[in-house]
Design a protein around this nucleic acid. Sequence first.
DNA 1: CATGATACCTTGTCTGACAAGGTTTGACTC
DNA 2: GAGTCAAACCTTGTCAGACAAGGTATCATG
Lengths: 117, 117
Amino acid sequence: MPRMAKYQGPGLTELRRGVVEYCVMSLLSTEEMYGFQLVETLASHDGLVTSEGTMYPLLGRLNDAGLVNTNWKQEGSNRPRKYYSLTSAGVAALDAFRNDWARFRDTVDKVLSASGE
Amino acid sequence: MPRMAKYQGPGLTELRRGVVEYCVMSLLSTEEMYGFQLVETLASHDGLVTSEGTMYPLLGRLNDAGLVNTNWKQEGSNRPRKYYSLTSAGVAALDAFRNDWARFRDTVDKVLSASGE
DNA sequence: CATGATACCTTGTCTGACAAGGTTTGACTC
DNA sequence: GAGTCAAACCTTGTCAGACAAGGTATCATG
């Protein structure tokens, strides 16, 4: 298996924009996780991220924005992993987004249902 | 009012990507409309499009892809308007997207609800 | 004819997803 | 210990699409 990807069609890439980042934050809100783990979780489980080339820059942005913290951890004889956790600013941003998402989702649902109101 | 826009926050722009195009198609599935009208409808009514700079290129793409047809119409003494209507390929694409959207929406809802699955 | 509204369109910028590639570390061979 | 593999990190470059800003043509009204 060469860098599997579960390709979901061409248009779906654009759909993910602006959402993946908050999905990551949502995962981090329950437990700290490391990058590779986030890719595997979102990609295989939800089809929301297809590569590390998406994840690492994204995590860098979140970090620059002060929405996550990082710390390296070595468990047993594994190679060290860089764990990410949500800051309080991250929690706030996530909350705000949940509202935005709900409104956006409902609007799109309404328009796609198409029955000209 | 200078080219009103109902700004919705910074992150929301990215959310719209890949969706607006199908919202337009959905509107066109019930009645033919012209570009300016689509902007007004989506912008003021739903906050989904904020400018003509989004709409006209978008309509051009749909046309190039064979998803819509156009015809100029002059009504009364108005300046002529370019009306768009869905082709059968457009109807099919819209149907396909409705499925994609439903899956995507549910996935995001699930991840954002965050309670570890 | 000047203004303003309607209506069309184009150019250029920016962001974020992704493919492709590269590096390091440790485990497990041979 | 040299080779290989996988886990895990990261970077570079490409592309699409939303948008701001600006431009054009037409008609009505002052």
